[in-house]
Amino acid sequence: MTAITTAAPAAAETSRNLTRTLLIGLLLLAAALPFLVGKSGFISNFTFLQLSLMIVYAIAVLGLNLLTGFNGQISLGHGAFFAVGAYTAAILIEHCGVNYWLTLPAAALICFVVGYLFGLPALRLEGHYLALATFGLAIAVPQMLKYKHLEPLTNGVMGINLLKPDAPFGLPLSGDQWMYLVVLVVAVAMFWMARNLLNSRPGRAMVAIRDHTLAAGTMGIDTSRYKATVFGISALYVGVAGALHAIIFEFVSPDSFRFELSIAILVGAVVGGVASLPGAVIGGIFVQFIEKYADAMTKKLTQAIHLPLELQPWTLYGITLIVLIYVMPGGIAGGLAALWARLRRPKSG
């Protein structure tokens, strides 16, 4: 018994150190990637754009995760904050000539305020009702961007075209490679901040509110202020993701941010693993991957197994979703953690 109790923390420590070393190594490799590849074309610019989009969606999924996974407030409308962030960046660059990286804090600030203000009335709503109210946001915001009176600013349904910034300091990188680096650095910073937040007292208060709001109140936590603030922080994350999306995609339009985007972010959060930081990364990959490849894979699969009936696009997506949720109710991150725990457990025990 004593042997176990003394060995367990040491083992946990080693495992933590190993994870950290692995993570840092992986991130360094990811950062070195564009320099290693250079202009050889071994990894295309299009692939770098895809990788950037994955990371952008990971930030968005993380934002929703802070709200839903760690604070227990559901949102079917985070695509709206994504749109607000994207348009903030696009308008600032197009009309004010602001440097692209300055648009990130601007989008963060605006989305925090919008999210906080939406979070205040949302305090009165819970569960299904909050889901519906936020869904309304997802429906309304793209339409609002089309308003005639906003047209000088938003350019209406046509949207705004942007130009991808070039790599600075004469770095031997393409625009896509450079923006991939920018996105990576921003993502690492935002995940790091989220981790620190969650490990702090406010982070524990967030989880306490999720687990039992009434009891959290009786513990002296101002639950209303917390919930509205978390709504703001969550919107901030998604807004920064939106701004990055606008810059790397070089285009914003109301129809880029339809309500499907809100659903995609929520699906990413659940499939990746609710209340899990690695889950947010997996969720981001899932969002981007599914959007691009679900159709192609459905067609390939139909041919491969000579299905007599024609599978409609998104069929595979739907089936994947059902199977995943059934097999891994804790998301992919939760499923992997459970698998890892099972593998590590000694067979005798």
């Binding site: 007292r201 524990r204 208060a205 989880v207 687990d211 009434l214 009891a215 009786t218 513990m219």
Partner: peptide, 26 residues
């Protein structure tokens, strides 16, 4: 005034220690 709510109100996602420390938040 400390309220021990109906049904215990456990913060199930936190450890015992974190549950106790939540109370000392302020």
């Amino acid at each position: 005034v400390a309220h021990v709510p109906e049904g215990r109100g456990t913060f199930v996602g936190l450890s015992v220690e974190e549950n106790l420390k939540i109370a000392s938040y302020g």
